[in-house]
């Protein structure tokens, strides 16, 4: 078990190294390079050389990369092109808002997906199964920003139940989280259904019924404990997608999180901030994967005991 965790941690380190290479390479692809971006289109050649020297951009690429990597590892994400403030504190300040959004979105998508998914599997082709099928399709095909705008129109403008933007009251999170969670609920629902449908054929459920257990215990305890395993992986993948979706949703709802910050800095071509943001996202996804593996091991003793 300890070995298993160590192996996963080791793998994550390599993933993160890969991400730094990618992030670094992406920035190199920007036409004209950062100097042109800072100075504007009509910069002279001398100005560009000067800026490049100041930023150390005249050094060989691998030197630049290792230098940057060394700083990132030490938690030094550099300063913003925009306002010359250190990047990391600005990003970390916005992290709680984004985490809140993700957690609540996740919660919404689970409370939608679990009951419908389970009932759809227990009674396949029933009315609820078909309703679930349609909902899933809608959830997947409607872009979350569109759902977000719809929610703002109906529940903020017309009904006035929730604030349209910002994060002033505790109800603020409901609409953006719902908009974000719905798209995930569709996929999750179908995943739970198919996973449970598979498990419901297993011999050990016959054993559970033969013991005299009620159908509720058979399905919710004996079947779901097994059916949840592949779903955990799906959830982890989906949270990665949620992170991407949060950039859009935070922008639509003026939610003061990392996503909106990143979006604004992108418009301003603030490259160090974007790099820092991408790195944090990568760290987040890696942590998520490790948590997923731990959860998986917790739920599946066959993994827990195989090292």
């Amino acid at each position: 078990m300890v070995l298993y965790i160590l192996r996963r941690l080791f793998q994550s380190v390599w993933v993160l190294v890969g991400v730094t290479v990618l992030v670094f390479a992406l920035v190199q692809l920007i036409p004209g390079g950062p100097a042109l971006m800072i100075l504007g289109e009509d910069a002279t050649a001398e100005q560009i050389t000067l800026v490049n020297q100041r930023l150390g951009l005249d050094r060989p690429l691998h030197v630049q990369y290792l230098d940057w990597l060394g700083k990132v590892v030490r938690g030094d994400f550099g300063v913003s092109f925009q306002d010359s403030r250190p990047i990391l504190p600005d990003l970390l300040n916005r992290m709680p808002a984004t985490l809140e959004l993700l957690v609540v979105a996740m919660f919404f998508s689970l409370i939608i997906a679990l009951p419908i998914g389970i009932i759809s599997a227990v009674k396949p082709n029933s009315l609820l199964d078909n309703v679930g099928r349609v909902l899933a399709l809608l959830g997947v095909s409607m872009p979350s920003f569109w759902i977000g705008l719809l929610l703002i129109m109906v529940f903020a403008r017309n009904l006035g139940w929730f604030p349209a933007v910002g994060r002033e009251s505790w109800t603020s999170v409901i609409m953006p989280a719902f908009a974000l969670g719905v798209s995930m609920a569709g996929i999750l629902m179908r995943m739970i259904r198919s996973s449970l449908l598979e498990v419901l054929r297993e011999d050990y459920l016959k054993t559970a019924r033969a013991k005299g257990l009620t159908e509720k215990v058979v399905v919710l305890k004996h079947a779901m404990r097994n059916a949840i395993l592949p779903v955990i992986t799906t959830i982890a993948l989906q949270v990665g997608n949620l992170l991407g979706g949060s950039v859009v949703i935070e922008t639509v709802f003026a939610w003061p999180g990392m996503g909106r910050f990143c979006y604004m800095r992108m418009l301003q071509r603030d490259i160090p901030t974007i790099m820092g943001n991408l790195m944090l996202y990568a760290v987040f996804v890696c942590i998520l994967n490790i948590v997923t593996d731990l959860l998986y091991a917790y739920f599946d003793p066959r993994i827990r005991y195989s090292g």
């Binding site: 011999d203 054993t207 033969a210 004996h222 097994n226 599946d300």
Partner: peptide, 21 residues
């Protein structure tokens, strides 16, 4: 009645027990 008055065992011992308990 199941499990109390009438109990049953099955052919496949490999798959008849729940792997996660």
């Amino acid at each position: 009645i199941r499990g109390r008055d009438i109990a049953m065992i099955f052919q496949e011992p490999m798959t008849s027990l729940n792997p996660v308990f």
